[in-house]
């Protein structure tokens, strides 16, 4: 039987992931991020609508609807992740959001658009920040898919 030797780094990673606090911790972190992101956007929907417009993906008829509906959705999904109520569904929702954010940011980078992510309120648009936001979306996608796969059904 071919039994490969486990390196120290791999073992530490396995123990970290298998720790009983890892999944609740990940849920809390993801939930906290979405609670914060949603709250900053609920406060300034016009600035968020302007951020969405910089992506040049949605028609004007949909931009404000998304700017009004998305922040409460993020807050509710964040609350569900933090509380653990329907956490599997919430993690799937968060994964979906992260996927859409990744597509939006990726197409902006490919098209050379200087966008304001608007993820945590409005800010100065920059390509460097867009790359950072793209990386963050991928991390959130990976984390939420992990929660979705590992979380017990309610």
């Amino acid at each position: 039987m071919d039994k490969r030797k486990e390196t120290g780094g791999n073992r530490a990673m396995r123990l970290f992931i298998q720790n009983r606090w890892f999944l609740p911790g990940l849920r809390l972190a993801l939930g906290g991020v979405f609670l914060y992101a949603g709250t900053t956007k609920v406060i300034g929907p016009q600035a968020f609508a302007d951020s969405i417009a910089t992506f040049k993906m949605l028609p004007p008829q949909l931009i404000n609807i998304v700017a009004l509906g998305l922040p409460p959705f993020e807050i509710l999904a964040g609350l569900m992740l933090v509380s653990g109520w329907n956490a599997r569904a919430a993690s799937l929702a968060v994964a979906g959001l992260a996927f859409v954010f990744g597509i939006a940011l990726g197409q902006a980078l490919i098209r050379g658009l200087v966008v304001d992510c608007g993820c945590f309120g409005s800010g100065e648009p920059s390509t460097l920040k867009t790359w950072g936001s793209f990386g963050r979306a991928l991390l959130i996608l990976a984390g939420s898919l992990w929660v979705f796969c590992m979380q017990d059904t309610d």
């Binding site: 609920v42 929907p45 509906g69 998305l70 922040p71 409460p72 959705f73 509710l76 919430a90």
Partner: peptide, 11 residues
Amino acid sequence: LVATTALCVGL
């Protein structure tokens, strides 16, 4: 259901 509720709350 959450998405529908969120949209109603936002509006």
